[in-house]
């Protein structure tokens, strides 16, 4: 029996892991794009400062659009986003719906990219102007300053909030069942019909071991970056 349950749960766990890894792979870089969007300074009506349309002069459309998008994504439940992304295209535009896993990864990646972008932004904005200026007076280009001077300091500063968010992701993967992904909790639930409750506790053990391993990993990374202060 135990072996049978384990095998069944491992099947579900594999889906969980897939969601987790693919979401991270897409949302970590996508978050950087969103982050740059939310800090974008482009302001097409800057020149109207003196005229009657002066209220437009400070408008930064890319920043505004990105921040609005982030606000919507962070302000609504991931479960709702999952449902809309899976059923929406078909019901609204008559398009064929995406495979379940694709829709899951799309929804999770967008959602997590928005959370990550805010963490990145906090990290980037916390670096003192002096660091940029020191790079500038040493003749560095903008990208050299970002990649050679700022980035590692940002990584160090966002380590704690990122690890929180990533551990939350481990648990959020269970939401994917709403659009029919056979993740680990669902696979555990199968056994309720047979009158067994312990497989559900067993799924909990999977989560604990997984997030425990991540905690150890992040601890190691933090330690690795502890050689400097800043």
């Amino acid at each position: 029996m135990f072996t049978q349950v384990t095998l069944e749960l491992l099947g579900g766990f594999w889906e969980t892991i897939k969601i987790f890894l693919l979401t991270l792979a897409f949302s970590i870089p996508l978050g950087l794009v969103v982050c740059f969007g939310s800090m974008n300074k482009w302001s097409p009506f800057r020149r109207l400062e003196a005229g009657p349309l002066h209220f437009l002069s400070g408008w930064k459309p890319i920043r505004w659009l990105t921040r609005t998008f982030v606000w919507i994504i962070r302000g609504t439940p991931l479960m709702l986003q999952l449902i809309i992304i899976f059923y929406g295209p078909g019901l609204m535009f008559g398009l064929p719906s995406m495979p379940r896993m694709t829709a899951t990864i799309v929804a999770f990646s967008i959602n997590y990219a928005c959370y990550f972008s805010e963490i990145y932004r906090g990290g980037i904005e916390s670096i003192s102007r002096g660091q940029y200026e020191a790079g500038q007076v040493l003749g560095m280009t903008k990208s050299q300053i970002f990649f050679r001077v700022v980035l590692l300091q940002v990584v160090k500063r966002i380590m704690a909030p990122m690890s929180n968010e990533i551990i939350t992701l481990v648990k959020d993967t269970s939401l994917a069942r709403i659009i029919g992904i056979y993740e680990i909790i669902w696979s555990g639930e199968q056994f309720i019909k047979k009158g067994l409750i312990w497989p559900l506790f067993y799924t909990g053990a999977f989560y604990l071991i997984f997030s425990g391993a991540l905690t150890i990993l992040f601890g190691k990374l933090e330690k690795k970056l502890s050689y400097f202060r800043g």
Partner: peptide
Amino acid sequence: QNRLHFGLVFQNFNLFPQ
């Protein structure tokens, strides 16, 4: 390029911590 004619030492050093 212009910046390279000058050097600047800041009041609060601004060394790169890493």
